[in-house]
Computed example of a mutant assay.
Amino acid sequence: MSQRVVIADDDALTRGGIRMVLAAIPGVEVVAEVADGKEARAAVERLKPDVVLMDIRMPGVDGLAALRTLTGPTRVIMLTTFGEEQYIDEALAHGAAGFVLKSSAAEELGPALRAAAAGEMFLSPPVTRHAVTRLRGFHAQPVPGADRLAELSEREIEVLKLLARGLSNTAISESLVISESTVKTHVSRILLKLECENRVQAALLATQSGLLR
């Protein structure tokens, strides 16, 4: 089954670059390109796409304003640049399925779309690092689920520490000198054992429990 995607970005060159990246991903069909949030809302209502790749800063109705008004099963992945991480909380609170950095869209759009199709969340590693760093100083009280860290193997702890620092699966595989498929297996087991829905939750649990100290 194909994923039907709408690209929402006010820059035509950026839309063209994203379209080229998506053309190389099997099973992905671009059904519309729009230049602002108002057009994105109209496209979602008309076409009922599976995913909208939504720029944050657009003239008129921006990406966050559009996200707040979208309803239905369409998932929204925010397109972001360095320096826009301050929008993470608002976007996630309104149901964004993740963040992809425009500078690394070629590497991140595939995993982000797969995560969206599976009902999961994808955050670009630098965005994960920002979220973890920002929350690192919060609350010194016990963290729910921290006791489950004892269920992880020594290798899983190593993977979790690198994941919590915002490393991608590829970077973790290079750091530990193991295959990327092995990393994916470890991450899946970590999420299962920690009862976390996604790697961001696992990263925050690891950080707030003091695992990185």
Rank of each mutant, 00 (worst) to 15 (best):
L160K: 10
L160T: 15
L160V: 11
L160N: 01
K161W: 15
K161R: 15
L162Y: 01
L162T: 07
L162H: 04
L163T: 09
L163H: 02
L163Y: 02
L163C: 08
A164S: 12
A164E: 06
A164K: 02
A164T: 06
R165P: 08
R165N: 14
R165T: 13
R165C: 07
G166H: 15
G166D: 02
G166Q: 13
G166L: 14
L167V: 11
S168N: 02
S168L: 13
S168C: 11
N169V: 11
N169D: 06
N169A: 08
N169K: 06
N169L: 05
T170N: 10
T170I: 13
T170M: 10
A171K: 02
A171E: 10
I172Y: 02
I172G: 03
S173G: 08
S173Y: 00
S173T: 00
S173H: 00
S173V: 01
S173F: 00
S173W: 00
E174G: 14
E174F: 15
S175G: 06
S175V: 02
S175T: 07
S175P: 07
L176R: 14
L176G: 09
L176S: 12
L176Y: 14
V177G: 10
V177R: 13
V177A: 12
I178T: 12
I178D: 01
I178V: 07
I178M: 09
S179A: 13
S179E: 12
S179W: 09
S179I: 03
S179T: 13
E180P: 04
E180K: 02
E180H: 01
E180N: 07
E180M: 05
S181N: 15
S181A: 15
S181M: 14
S181P: 15
T182Y: 15
T182E: 15
V183C: 08
H186R: 06
H186C: 03
V187S: 01
V187N: 00
S188V: 09
S188D: 08
R189L: 09
R189K: 06
R189D: 04
I190A: 00
I190W: 00
I190K: 00
I190Y: 00
I190V: 14
I190S: 00
L191W: 13
L191D: 00
L191V: 11
L192K: 04
L192G: 06
K193C: 03
K193Y: 05
K193V: 03
E195K: 09
E195T: 07
E195H: 09
E195G: 03
C196L: 10
C196T: 04
C196Q: 04
C196A: 06
E197G: 14
E197I: 09
E197C: 13
E197P: 10
E197T: 12
N198D: 12
N198P: 12
N198Y: 08
R199Y: 04
R199I: 01
R199K: 04
V200E: 12
V200I: 14
V200D: 11
Q201S: 07
A202E: 06
A203T: 01
A203C: 01
L204N: 09
L204G: 11
L204D: 08
L204F: 04
L204M: 11
L204R: 09
L205C: 06
L205P: 05
L205W: 09
L205D: 10
L205Q: 01
A206F: 02
A206V: 02
A206T: 05
T207I: 05
T207G: 11
Q208W: 11
S209K: 10
S209E: 10
G210M: 14
G210K: 12
G210N: 15
G210F: 08
G210C: 08
